[in-house]
Design a binder for these strands. Sequence first.
DNA 1: TAGAACTCTAAGCATGCTCTCAGGAACATC
DNA 2: GATGTTCCTGAGAGCATGCTTAGAGTTCTA
Lengths: 225, 225
Amino acid sequence: MRPGTRVLLVEDDRLIAEFVEPELERLGFRVRCAYDGPSGLEAARNFEPELIVLDIMLPKIDGVGVLKELRSEGVRTPVIMLTARDATIDKVHSLDLGADDYVTKPFEMDELLARIRALLRRTEGDEVLRVADLEVNTSTHEVRRKERKIDLTAREYALLEFMARHPNRVLSRELLLSQVWDRGFGVTTNVVEVYIAYLRKKVDGPGEQRLIQTLRGSGYALKGA
Amino acid sequence: MRPGTRVLLVEDDRLIAEFVEPELERLGFRVRCAYDGPSGLEAARNFEPELIVLDIMLPKIDGVGVLKELRSEGVRTPVIMLTARDATIDKVHSLDLGADDYVTKPFEMDELLARIRALLRRTEGDEVLRVADLEVNTSTHEVRRKERKIDLTAREYALLEFMARHPNRVLSRELLLSQVWDRGFGVTTNVVEVYIAYLRKKVDGPGEQRLIQTLRGSGYALKGA
DNA sequence: TAGAACTCTAAGCATGCTCTCAGGAACATC
DNA sequence: GATGTTCCTGAGAGCATGCTTAGAGTTCTA
């Protein structure tokens, strides 16, 4: 973890906030606190934290609402939720809404820290995926090949982003169907082929190196080397 | 998540195990259960799961011990720990030891599932099988002998990968037929011979050590020593 | 509400992979 | 060396796989 990493703590229980904040600061984080939903949202937008610790129970807008709003704005900052002990529904709901982890109250400082470290460890990364001379900006959904800007539809983008997140890997039709489309098993369709063709037309221009490769019998791969 | 993903469940509480196992299987996982530390270790080594769900409280060797041993052997399979409610020490300890996540008992199935999905989503990495000077990258399906790159068809690759996963072992025709092809018994065919020949032509170049060996009357083996 | 844009299905077609078959080589046993 | 068994190999038929294209159905937009 880099020192100076910005952490936003959204927690209405002052006791907890006033205990956690100095602890995090002591460890080299830059911390901001917010005490209800709306101010949490505002802080998330202005402070631009690298990580958000978000209580579920909050005045005005609850944690789930805040998370939802942020994600709908395209904010992908990693989020750890704080939940009451047995609120399993909330937990599962949060994870599927795009929370990255949660901690059950009451918690110990060491545990929260371990989770913060773990989460930062796996989300410290660029927002821009690069594969060969292709750039995929996951924040703005902007795609460029060299200098050429590429316009993609929603589905095309989703497919390309997934492939760019797993460069060089063989991605089977079933995997793509389950990850990019929400298709179950056993469905007979050729959407994947069709969308690969669409992408090829836009990404692999004439005279350019073919990034999107077919591996007959296995699937497709986005080649970066 | 790919269907057929192997999950190992190490849990001595039969009630839990017998509830979780069929649930996971229903969702397309291939599941194996173990009921104490040593058999959990053994299963981890033989079954080669893609993910392990590991209870902390276990007979003979506890979960932390199992995790420690596995990590010390270089096994990096993602692990979800099951912990009693307030065992914070264990939790922190486990995370630092290399557990990837944990779930607090009692848990609901949906929660465990959400965590399994999340973990599988973020831990797909490269796995390279090495046999002598042969490299088989199971993520990219790239095959090299020394520096020479080898192009294989889907079936050829499937056969070679299987052999590379079991180096130095005699692999009977029937075994190969059942594992690489989906053939039942009693079918009279010589596909295996044919494909072994294809592989030889590509893998064992002229002047190179023969890795693919015939054991007359028994089957074939990929020699690595 | 019409038109545009997007998503997906379906059918036709080219390619080359997969597998069978049959003859010949290699090996074991006497 | 003769004989039977096991394995190798080359050729070719059939068919699965993947690419294209057209268009139907749906959603977005002006």
